[in-house]
Design a protein around this nucleic acid. Structure first.
Lengths: 232, 232
DNA sequence: AGGTGTGAAAGTGTTCACAGCC
DNA sequence: GGCTGTGAACACTTTCACACCT
């Protein structure tokens, strides 16, 4: 039996692990930039703010890439994590909605180090269509399907007002986009084959407010101390 | 024994529940705007994209606010959820780093319906200090401590370049801010009493790329169908 | 000695299914 | 009849602790 790419574990990296791999990757790249050749799970865990056992278990899902008594080779681990995350190929991204936020996203140069290419900017407002933002022309949303096909867009970033988000999403899905990053404050309805991730400023603030309230509440005075992990 | 506010459950709403309450709240407000007086868990769950049992369990952590055979009173539930999230009081927010993103955040009017007030904008770049953004003057980061005290800031939003984020965070923590929303792509080091939430564009894209890769991989063809919940 | 990889235990979160109330 | 609230089962995640390798 021959297999060209020695696939580590046949399938199923836990979602919680996937969400942390980018954090490890960033730390590893920083270590690499400063010339560190190897790193122990203990040290990398400290840098990324996780428990070292968790880090080792996370990495073990990719395969056995560490050396006992030594640690992990930074370069090699960068390669393995990148590969697992699919960053060895380039993904074309379209940003829809070039308001304040869309502009900020377009200009956010380090859009994840490498692996992503902002391929198109789209907006419904004719008065900004044709403008250049971050070196790219804003195109009219009318030709979304055409642009998605022409640029092989595989990830759509929705930065429109809430009211427009679902219909933009439907059109993206309609022309084959199966990954969406949604900044509009609405729950998007999509078929189960489509992945949606949501970034919602006001939700984050509300979660912070909840905890902030607890801190200054009557609660927690007495039992605050001595309960390890009562905060987190 | 007298208690003015009838506190539902003495303590400990699960973190996962807290993260969903803002989503329910937004849906409830939309229902209220369109005049819907009551809603069942089934219907609210459909709108917010969760399982109805989960929704009921989430709400049960706040108390017994539903009516069997009927559903939940929209108005009353809005009040209870808002109160639990601490939105009955106003929180002052400072945004540090008024680049593209900071500007977008400052202009993002519906900053969580109500409950939050953008109290200050700060930046290190003297050439934009004094400019008005979203009706507020940009002030110099030198006077951060003064501004935090003067405006009673309780939530700091870090929208600076990565290199500046930790030192800005330290200064916020130093003058008593215990809630931080971090947009800079770095892991912030804070004492355990401080809550940090992170919003990271490139991490979200990388997670999407991982799943996108899996979809177009050799994997998943055969066992794709018939496994309920194999995605999500 | 030093540090990875991993069973096993503990902790969290989700879903089912139904008793009980309206 | 319809719908909430919740015990119990299940699934996922984290953490511990240590065997095993270098």
């Amino acid at each position: 039996m021959t297999r060209r790419t020695p696939r580590p574990r046949e399938r199923g990296i836990p979602e919680a692990t996937v969400a942390r791999l980018p954090v490890y990757l960033r730390a590893l790249q920083a270590l690499n930039d400063q010339g560190t050749p190897t790193i122990s799970s203990e040290d990398l865990a400290a840098i990324t703010g996780v428990n070292s056992a968790k880090l080792r278990k996370d990495l073990s899902h990719l395969g056995s890439y560490g050396t006992r008594g030594v640690g992990y080779d930074v370069d090699y681990l960068i390669y393995q994590v990148s590969r697992e995350l699919g960053l060895t190929q380039d993904w074309s991204v379209a940003i829809i909605g070039i308001g304040n936020l869309g502009r900020a996203l377009a200009n956010y140069g380090g859009f994840g180090s490498r692996g992503f290419r902002i391929a198109a900017l789209l907006d419904a407002d004719s008065s900004i269509v044709g403008d250049k933002v971050a070196g790219l022309p804003v195109r009219h949303i009318e030709i979304l399907e055409e642009v998605v096909a022409g640029e092989s867009v595989s990830i759509g970033v929705i930065a429109t007002p809430a009211a427009a988000a679902q219909s933009v999403c439907d059109r993206l899905v309609g022309c084959g986009v199966t990954s969406v990053l949604n900044f509009a404050p609405v729950v998007l309805n999509v078929p189960p084959s489509v992945d949606v991730r949501k970034v919602d400023l006001s939700i984050e603030l509300q979660i912070l407010a909840f905890h902030e309230q607890r801190k200054s509440d009557g609660y927690g005075g007495p039992e605050w101390f001595g309960i390890p992990g009562s905060l987190t």
